[in-house]
């Protein structure tokens, strides 16, 4: 294994552990108060009340499952793809809310109604999105079948 491959693998491992822990934390925080999280989703005014309830059921569980998959290295390509997809969805929701001037809580890593959407929140989410896509492209494609 050459130096560059080893460097990529270490970076991928760090990103996997970071996103794994982040998603498990975020999932547990949201699952602790599903009603509040459903309200956070509804505040974005994209989905109605009913779909927001389903979102509050699915997203925290999906985050925990993806977090575990990233930590354990199980179905890595799929875990990275889904995580990246989730971040893109979160980004679109946050940016459209900011563009529409909605004064709402992000609900990104908590179910609370605190922490309003601002430029920093958008920037932080964008950085995380770039990092998860970096992890996806660092993942060695030829070894996918080995998982």
């Amino acid at each position: 294994m050459d130096k560059s491959t080893r460097g990529k693998n270490i970076l991928l491992l760090i990103l996997r552990l970071f996103f794994g822990c982040l998603f498990i934390y975020s999932g547990f925080v949201k699952i602790a108060d599903p009603q509040n999280f459903a309200e956070s989703i509804e505040n974005y005014q994209i989905f109605g009340t009913w779909l927001s309830q389903w979102g509050a059921v699915l997203i925290p569980a999906l985050e925990i499952v993806l977090g575990l998959m990233l930590l354990l290295g199980f179905w890595m390509k799929e875990a990275l793809l889904l995580t990246a997809g989730l971040f893109v969805i979160f980004d679109v929701m946050v940016i459209q809310a900011a563009a529409r001037g909605l004064n709402i809580a992000c609900g990104c890593f908590s179910s609370s109604q605190n922490g309003l959407i601002d430029l920093w929140k958008i920037l932080a989410n964008s950085v995380l999105t770039v990092l998860i896509f970096t992890a996806y492209f660092l993942f060695p494609k030829k070894s996918q079948s080995a998982n």
């Binding site: 699952i31 108060d33 009603q35 059921v57 569980a61 925990i64 499952v65 998959m69 179905w75």
Partner: peptide, 19 residues
Amino acid sequence: VIIFSLIAGIVINQFHSQG
């Protein structure tokens, strides 16, 4: 993964006092 998470989410919510 999505279906598994959805089922897990529904089950957790049924046993969760705030679910």
